[in-house]
Write a protein that binds this DNA or RNA. Structure first.
Length: 340
DNA sequence: GGTAGACCTGGACGC
DNA sequence: GCGTCCAGGTCTACC
């Protein structure tokens, strides 16, 4: 008998808005169905993979949009309504706890209403839409690998890499689909084979090396995930550690910090330069613009990245409609600036 | 301390 | 179609 779970959420939580808040919601194994406002993916649980579908109680299909500009950005869904989670099979008690933990991490349910309210006090532009939470992955490992697959490539390549990683090395089957591969699985793959089967290019060795570090764990000189996830670990220590990892430079390190809920640093890339020039009216060399962007968002303090990110996200939405209406086969493939 | 060039892939462009 | 060029962060080598 398939398991059904009810997940309680913060009082302001809206699934459609808070899932469709970061590009990773468009990357395998994640799936967002704009027609039914349902999120689904395969989770890796102790007894095996399981497909889970998540929807929010009472959320209905968004009404057809009117003309451009008369959309107030308020997402479909009743804030704070519980999530209904349907699994493709029966889950043991232990697996139910695992699933809740992974879903909680992915949806950022740990960030309560008061955290988002504080962000809105610092930057009131997002109060009306309620934007504040950023979607991430069920595990730290997946967040790190997704970051690496988004470095130095255009978005369509990132989509392909993640799809291939799941299809080739993820657990699952034809019926339920496949999840994201575990660190242990990738750690045992030869770099050349990863490159050939997943088109990760020169990232092959770096990805395998990272997987080995995750798979080894702290006792064998690898990565101590708990230390990174622990809010009491200082930002500086995490940043310094990340920069030592293969394939992780300033952009990736800042992005991973954001994914860990540390929003003070900005992962700036070429997209940021465009944003600085066209939206913020900045001029000068790329270096100068990067510096100016950091300075521009510094006053937002520990919410700097949220302010920056939702400014970018607003830009994409202005061009392509609200993110929860994006179809992954069309809009979802081309939502970055280079394509607009 | 900063920086030129290589790395790999998919997409755009010119023929 | 086919070949060439370019975008996109990180890393190494070298000032």
């Amino acid at each position: 008998v398939a398991t059904r779970l009810t997940v309680r959420v913060p009082g302001d939580y809206v699934l459609a808005r808070d899932v469709c808040s970061y590009g990773y919601f468009l990357l395998a194994p994640n799936r967002w169905d704009p027609a039914t406002l349902t999120f689904s993916r395969v989770l890796d649980l102790s007894e095996g993979p399981a497909l889970i579908r998540i929807r929010q109680e009472g959320a209905r299909h968004a009404p057809a949009r009117g003309g451009d500009g008369d959309d107030d950005g308020v997402p479909p869904g009743r804030p704070g309504a519980p999530l209904i989670v349907m699994a493709s099979r029966g889950l043991t008690r232990a697996e139910q706890r695992e699933a809740r933990r992974q879903i909680g991490r992915m949806l950022r349910l740990d960030e309560g209403e008061e955290v988002i309210a504080e962000f809105h006090r610092v930057d009131p532009r997002w109060k009306k839409s309620g934007r504040g939470r950023l979607m991430r992955s069920p595990t730290f490992f997946e967040d790190v690998i997704k970051t690496v697959t988004s470095c130095n490539v255009t978005w369509p390549s990132t989509i392909i890499m993640n799809a291939r990683l799941c299809a080739v090395y993820g657990r699952g089957n034809r019926e339920i689909g496949r999840g994201f591969p575990s660190a242990k699985r990738i750690a045992g793959v030869k770099p050349g084979r990863l490159r050939a089967r997943c088109t990760v290019g020169y990232r092959d060795q770096r990805i395998v090396e990272l997987a080995k570090m995750f798979a080894a764990g702290p006792r064998r000189g690898g990565i101590d995930v708990e230390w990174f996830e622990d809010p009491s670990t200082p930002d500086e220590a995490i940043h310094a550690a990340l920069l030592q990892w293969p394939g992780i430079g300033p952009y990736a390190a800042a992005n991973i910090m954001q994914l860990l809920g540390r929003y003070r640093r900005l992962p700036l890339d070429t997209e940021s330069i465009r944003h600085g020039k066209t939206i913020l009216g900045m001029t000068g060399s790329d270096r100068a613009i990067m510096k100016a962007i950091h300075a521009h968002f510094a006053p937002f303090g520990e919410h700097a990245f949220r302010s920056y990110w939702f400014e970018l996200w607003d830009f994409y939405e202005a061009k392509r409609g609200r993110s929860w209406t994006w179809d992954r086969e069309t809009t979802g493939r081309s939502f970055t600036a280079a394509k607009l």
